[in-house]
């Protein structure tokens, strides 16, 4: 359970930083004006990133407040992993295809959330830990 909590905190921090980074990115582009062309692909990717991050933040806050049932824990961990993989994939595509170097720094946050979601999936629940102790 403790690993799950650490993983959830990692996901939460990674996604909050992701959204902050995205807002700074947008503001920077708006203030710079016509120098850089923002095409539809970038806007759609940005929307996916923000929605993904928002869902992950909401889910991790629900977990930290203890509002996710034990029956739904598996669904929670799998959905977190899928969401973070999607986020990572979108940013990897942007990182590899785009000319913008800022994605080099920006790609750190999805990596943090991916590590966190792997920790959530790998973390054992309280009951499992007790059973393994009994077996020993």
């Amino acid at each position: 359970m403790k690993t799950k909590r650490t993983g959830t905190i990692l996901c939460l921090v990674g996604n909050i930083l992701n959204i902050i980074g995205f807002i700074i990115f947008i503001l920077y582009f708006k203030t710079l004006g016509s120098g850089i062309s923002v095409n539809t692909e970038m806007i759609v990717d940005g929307l996916i990133i923000v929605i993904d991050s928002a869902i992950m933040i909401a889910l991790s806050i629900l977990f930290l407040k203890g509002k996710i049932n034990k029956d739904l824990m598996k669904l929670y961990s799998i959905s977190m992993l899928l969401l973070s993989i999607t986020l990572f994939a979108v940013l990897c595509i942007l990182f590899l295809s785009s000319v913008l170097c800022c994605y080099m720094i920006y790609i750190v946050f999805p990596i943090i959330s991916l590590v966190g979601s792997i920790m959530i999936l790998a973390g054992k629940e309280k009951n499992e830990v007790k059973e393994t102790k009994k077996d020993n």
Binding site: G35, I36, V99, L100, C101, C102, M104, I105
Partner: peptide
Amino acid sequence: FTCSGCALCGMTR
């Protein structure tokens, strides 16, 4: 860096 240099490159560099 492989790009010619965009506006945000300043900070990364």
